[in-house]
């Protein structure tokens, strides 16, 4: 089953072509990598998929629905959740509240029934709360539920961000450099965690990552960008020996 397909999406900022003719296709339950040197346009590609920037050209199709140029909150509602390169947690809220808030998009009551606490709202709130607790249990953050988000160690903050994204009920998860700034121990745990998420939540994952050990260990297939252009595509073994990729990363003599 085809999950996500981008058809030659291009983003131009003024005179700079940040991403050019990127065509990605992701099947259900795959873990796909998007790699490339700094400034290659990986995050721009993410921003086009999630609706933060509308693409200059091209279309994004998610579960056979054209989502090109839709607002980010709408895209999330359809089932694409993301994390950020530099962690963007709700700093002053607790771990529990961070995840709880990500359930808000599925709330059917209006603001007044939330103030009056109508039975319908109370039931939904209880469900949201239970879902939150279950999710925290699954990702192993239940014992820090009441801590402030920023008081967590770095690795756990990354994990919380993923948990928060999962709480929106996605079928596709976009991870923007989940291993950035992690030590070997933490990145090893992260790899296990990503597999765990795929099994537990029946998830499809697209990730940007610099950490080669993580990418090669986790991804089944990957796309390599350089200066906005897709220079290679395929399974890890193929990418590792691709002369163009080696050139992009190491340069030529």
């Amino acid at each position: 089953m085809k999950m996500l397909e981008t058809n030659r999406i291009t983003k131009v900022f003024g005179g700079l072509v940040a991403v050019s003719d990127l065509t990605i296709s992701i099947q259900k339950n795959e873990i796909i990598g998007l790699i490339g040197p700094n400034g290659a346009g990986k995050t721009t590609a993410f921003n086009m998929i999630t609706g933060i920037y509308p693409p200059t050209r091209g279309t994004v199709t998610f579960l056979d629905q054209d989502i090109t140029g839709h607002k980010p909150h709408f895209v999330t509602r359809l089932g694409i959740a993301r994390t950020f390169q530099n962690i963007r947690l709700f700093k002053e809220l607790s771990v529990l509240e961070n995840v709880f808030v990500a359930n808000h998009l599925r709330l059917k009551s209006n603001i007044f029934s939330s103030v009056i606490r109508t039975p319908g709202y109370v039931r939904q709130e209880k469900e949201m709360y239970e879902k939150t607790m279950m999710l925290l249990e699954k990702v192993g953050l239940i014992d820090v539920a009441d801590e402030t988000a920023t008081s967590l160690p770095y690795g756990k903050q990354r994990r919380l961000e993923i948990a928060r994204a999962l709480a929106t009920g996605p079928s596709l998860l976009l991870l923007d450099e989940p291993a950035a700034g992690m030590n070997p121990q933490e990145s090893h745990e992260l790899m296990d965690f990503i597999f765990h998420v795929r099994e537990q939540f029946d998830m499809t994952i697209l990730m940007i990552e610099h950490h080669m050990q993580v990418v090669m260990g986790v991804c089944e297939r990957m796309y390599v960008l350089d200066y906005g252009i897709t220079i290679a595509e395929g399974p890890p073994e193929k990418i590792q020996n691709d002369p163009k990729v080696i050139e992009a990363y190491l340069g030529v003599d």
Partner: peptide, 25 residues
């Protein structure tokens, strides 16, 4: 009651980080 409920938390999340709030739907 507003701040205790889901809407109150949503408002707070907008205060904390608008882009993340938008990305959380």
């Amino acid at each position: 009651r507003l701040m205790r409920g889901s809407y109150g938390k949503a408002l707070k999340s907008i205060r904390e980080d608008e882009i993340a709030a938008e990305a959380m739907g």
